[in-house]
Design a protein around this nucleic acid. Structure first.
Length: 606
RNA sequence: GGCCCUGUAGUUCAAUGGAUAGAACAAAAGUUUCCUAAACUUUAGAUACAGGUUCGAUUCCUGUCAGGGCUACCA
């Protein structure tokens, strides 16, 4: 990818104003002001102006009325900053108008740049983004979808921001949960395979996991009925004893056990691949817990030797985190089998050695906040150089209207089913609207896919990652309003206009338009386009795709209003018509770019 | 019990401590001889409660209430 040197107007003018204000205040009022108190923001729509300086923070120190300070600052800015043309003061707000030339220059420089909004590549070490991280005992569900979409989108955003990104997946392919599926398959599976059962591999293995849990629960309640307390019953149920034995055998490398494990995992991977393919998600490297947990054990034992950890009487190895305000935490079981955090210690080190990243981002649900706190502390205690680089990107749960998804109650929304449902809905709505005349069957299929998947991705990504969100399967499948189809439709509309435009209609690339001919609505659109680089930067800084998502919607809405109010091709004034066409095309470029950062493909027609 | 997170229209989401709290869906009413009506325009509707800090609080602090999560030799 070739990047040309880019020049960001947004950052330029805002920075310039923020930087110059303290010295202006010093000149006029003779006071040194804390630069952090200088606040330049976009002027709200209902007021006249482009940028606004908030005056209140200065009033106390300067001992003058906000109006007086605002007026003086405004006059000074007009004099000292070329781009500022005029100003007005309302209450404590100094609204600045930029010269028309500023906006026209911006338009001229960027309107045909498909990399508009991107930053130059930084020369730092790469960022590793871990996401997806499935267990191989269950198919992917709605919660995994949020994880995958966030990880994928954040990777794209960081890349646009100029970071080198390595997307990695850590597959939890071992542990007691996998043994549960294996045991149930051995006991009741009758040799079933995905082929013989006609079932996707991950689904099939998941069936046996569910079966195990069901039988296990039965055994536990039988024991409880027989007088045992719950804790004991859960520990001593025959199925639990068996599955523990199996885990031990697996860690000892028992041939038969490992063989079944390999076979069933293979089925699961084939199933996962189908789902990843549907979602359009890929990885640079896949780690398997079965490869990393041993290294984790080594790290734990080293820590024990160095006295960072300690052994309890029963033989388990623990870390004391009371100094850090946390509890003791088990790192290795008495029987030397590893627990969750054991492998995470190993994985972190292997990953660091592989990439020497400047940051290791873990996209993992907020239910694991405590786990990652502990992980970071343990790495710190061990003196690992990468403990600082570790960053837990904690996201909220996806809930159903009735609360959390519960497999026992059968309310888990399956990823494949949901994707299929979205595509079917897209097909139904598209056909009802009847706009696919002249499209081949393949083109139509692709359209349904893009619209359906786009709607799903957008629905999830438009929400702030940190917050829990509610997904209502009946109502969330919306294709109107604040949705991807709305934005894609806007793009298709722009494309339609561009297709119909005769070549000579386009304003020549290097020609601007008389400022007096630009309507307020057009300027609004231009200002919104002007924001895009800052939006990308913000979402990269905060690891938050919803900023890009909400921006894309706002841009599309603004364009649709403009489109409704003004004619592009039928405008008799050639210069205006040509300008509007360029403006539309610029909007299209930014919509495509922003949606691309969300992992959503645009469509040329819909 | 301890720790953490979240409370914004009927519903789903917005709002770096700044101006009159924005959208969408659902509800009601309109717009098509005109570049795609998956659009556009109206109408009605919200900061859980009580204090505090501040020139200014949805945002920060405290308390109450409500919801969720963690507190596993599950991951």
């Amino acid at each position: 990818m070739i990047f040309q040197k880019r020049y960001f107007f947004t950052m330029y003018i805002k920075k310039k104003l923020e930087e110059i204000l303290p010295s202006i205040i010093k000149d006029i009022f003779g006071h040194d002001i804390d630069p952090g108190k200088v606040l330049v923001q976009k002027t709200r729509r209902e007021f006249e102006g482009d940028f606004t300086v908030v005056i209140f923070p200065f009033t106390k120190l300067l001992g003058k009325s906000p109006e007086e300070i605002g007026k003086k600052l405004g006059e000074a800015l007009i004099e000292k900053v070329d781009d500022v043309e005029s100003c007005n003061v309302i209450k404590g707000f100094l609204n600045l108008n930029l010269k028309a030339g500023y906006w026209l220059d911006f338009f001229l420089e960027h309107h045909s740049d498909v990399y508009y909004g991107y930053s130059e590549p930084k020369k730092e070490r790469p960022v590793v983004v871990e996401f997806s991280s499935p267990n191989t005992n269950k198919p992917l569900h709605l919660g995994h979808i949020r994880n995958n979409l966030l990880g994928d989108s954040i990777s794209r955003i960081l890349e646009a921001y100029g970071q080198k990104v390595k997307k990695v997946n850590l597959v939890n392919d071992r542990g007691i949960h996998i043994c549960k599926s294996m045991l149930a398959w051995l006991k009741w599976g009758d040799g079933a395979t995905p082929e013989s059962a006609g079932r996707k591999g991950d689904q099939l293995v998941g069936d046996y996991y569910v079966l195990f849990e069901k039988e296990y629960r039965n055994q536990v309640s039988e024991l409880v009925d027989a007088g045992e307390n719950i804790e004991q019953a859960e520990k001593n149920a025959p199925l639990m004893l068996k599955v523990r034995e199996m885990l031990k055998k697996w860690e000892e490398g028992d041939k038969e056990t490992v063989c079944i494990w390999e076979k069933m995992n293979q089925w699961v991977y084939e199933g996962f691949d189908v789902t990843y393919e549907k979602l359009g998600i890929s990885f640079d490297k896949i780690y398997y817990e079965s490869d990393t947990y041993l290294h984790g054990k080594v790290i734990v034992k080293e820590g024990l030797k160095r006295g960072v950890f300690f052994r309890k009487p029963d033989g388990g190895i623990w870390v004391d985190l009371s100094q850090e305000g946390l509890d003791d935490k088990l790192l290795l079981r008495p029987d030397e089998t590893s627990v969750y955090i054991t492998q995470d210690l190993g994985t972190a080190e292997l990953r660091y050695n592989d990439f020497h990243p400047s940051k290791m981002i873990y996209v993992v649900g907020n239910e694991q906040d405590y786990h990652f706190k502990v992980l970071k502390k343990v790495l710190e205690k061990l003196g690992k150089p990468y403990s600082d680089a570790l960053y837990h990107l904690s996201y909220g749960m996806v809930e159903l209207p009735g609360g959390r998804m519960k497999s026992r109650e059968g309310t888990v929304v399956d990823a494949d089913d949901l994707i299929d449902l979205m595509e079917e809905t897209a097909e139904k709505i598209t056909d009802e609207l009847g706009k696919t005349g002249g499209m081949t069957k393949e083109q139509k299929q692709l359209l349904y896919k893009k619209v359906g998947l786009g709607a799903l991705k957008y629905f999830i990504l438009k929400v702030d990652p940190r917050k829990n969100m509610v997904f209502n399967p009946d109502e969330s499948i919306d294709f109107n309003g604040h949705t991807a189809p709305f934005i894609l439709y806007t793009y298709a509309r722009i494309n339609s206009v561009l297709r119909k435009a005769p070549n000579d209609k386009l304003l020549p690339l290097k020609k601007t338009i008389a400022a007096s001919k630009i309507a307020a609505k057009e300027k609004e659109l231009l200002k919104l386009l002007h924001d895009y680089p800052e939006i990308v930067m913000e979402s990269a800084d905060e690891f938050n795709p919803s900023i890009v998502a909400n921006y894309a919607y706002e841009l599309a809405r603004e364009f649709n209003q403009f489109y409704h109010e003004f004619s592009i091709l039928n405008e008799p004034d050639k210069e205006i018509s040509g300008f509007r066409l360029r403006l539309a095309s610029f909007t299209g470029i930014v919509i495509r770019s922003a949606m691309g950062l969300l992992g959503i493909d645009v469509v040329e027609r819909m």
